[in-house]
């Protein structure tokens, strides 16, 4: 799977580097001074690199844990995000990562201890307040778990800080690490969904809706808090039937009383990102839909977006209570 591994010289002998490299004995190892030399150059094509991404092992020196963007949250006042990894195994066509990064190579920061230390300090600073930490912003939290050991490494941090909550945002079925450990009440495993026909068409390489639901069932039976993330909503002429069917399917399989949170979000991208995506995939149907540019963002035409939001909100509230519903509206 990984045929080329770029490694920063400074972490060549880091134990995590050694463990990861040992998993890919046939991969070519190329050293570099800093990961940016490989990851940042402008003359790269995300689409072409996605055909065969390399792995870059690096150290993150600063900004390991950052405040989450406004409106990003499921109930806590204080929200942070952290990315142990950049880029995702999957290839969802709506994903902003395609617009944000020049390279589709996976960057894995091996200095987990630095991230863990910062999370601990933030949690300790206000022990009486609930603080949410979101992973899965720049990657899928679980997709590369067998390689990264991310969950295995970070769960103990949250086990030791009751006020620190972890969200693992994912589409993955790599849940073994979670099933092999005691569930944490302050760790939410949040699965993202779009209707089946949309998922098949634009969530390339991601597990099917069916497989994700199977994973969720197992986690729920094991006692893990679960989240549902319907973000972004994707328009199709038949979206109402499609989303109705999706919600029906999901809530028929899961115990809705034990869902921690459900969020709903619209499809929107910064204009610069959208332009880049559109150029990368000029024949992509998603980008030929009824979109408009407004205030530096590209989204569905406002009346349509509003209709979709209202419809999906109404449908979801047939299954869940408002206290567990977190719609991400434009105004937030």
């Amino acid at each position: 799977m990984i045929e080329t591994i770029y490694i920063e010289e400074a972490i060549l002998h880091h134990p995590r580097t050694q463990t990861i490299v040992a998993r890919f004995p046939k991969a070519q190892q190329i050293t570099c001074k800093r990961y940016g030399e490989v990851f940042n150059p402008k003359s790269q094509n995300f689409r072409l690199q996605k055909r065969k991404p390399a792995l870059i092992l690096a150290e993150k020196y600063k900004n390991q844990v950052l405040p989450a963007p406004p409106g990003y949250g499921v109930g806590a006042k204080h929200n942070y995000y952290f990315s142990h990894m950049l880029n995702c195994l999957y290839d969802c066509r709506y994903c902003f990562l395609q617009g944000m990064y020049q390279s589709a190579n996976y960057v894995l920061f091996v200095n987990y201890e630095t991230f863990q230390g910062q999370i601990g300090e933030i949690a300790k600073a206000t022990p009486e307040q609930e603080i949410h930490f979101f992973s899965g912003y720049d990657c899928d939290s679980l997709a590369l778990e067998p390689v990264t050991g991310f969950v295995e490494a970070f769960l103990p941090v949250f086990r030791n800080h009751a006020n620190a909550w972890l969200e693992l945002r994912t589409k993955s079925t790599q849940i073994r690490s979670l099933l092999e450990t005691e569930p944490l009440s302050n760790c939410i495993v949040a699965f993202s969904f779009t209707p089946e026909v949309i998922a098949k068409h634009i969530e390339h390489r991601a597990p099917s809706i069916q497989k994700r639901l199977e994973a969720m069932e197992k986690l729920q039976q094991a006692g893990w808090p679960l989240g549902l993330r319907f973000d972004p909503m994707i328009y199709q002429p038949d979206y109402q039937n499609q989303y109705q069917a999706l919600f029906k399917k999901i809530f028929a399989r899961l115990d809705r009383e034990n869902i921690h949170s459900v969020s709903l979000g619209s499809f929107r991208l910064p204009e610069k990102f959208f332009t880049k995506l559109d150029r990368l995939y000029p024949q992509e149907e998603l980008f030929a839909g009824p979109l408009e540019k407004s205030n530096g963002m590209v989204s569905y035409e406002s009346a349509l977006e509003q209709d979709m939001f209202e419809f999906c909100s109404e449908e979801l509230l047939k299954y869940i209570s408002p206290e567990n519903f977190y719609p991400c509206t434009v105004d937030q």
């Binding site: 030399e37 150059p41 072409l48 065969k52 390279s103």
Partner: peptide, 15 residues
């Protein structure tokens, strides 16, 4: 200066 030519294909020879 250094450059790292991306190779999203199976190379026909060693590098």
């Amino acid at each position: 200066k250094c450059w790292y030519p991306p190779r999203p294909f199976i190379a026909p020879c060693k590098s």
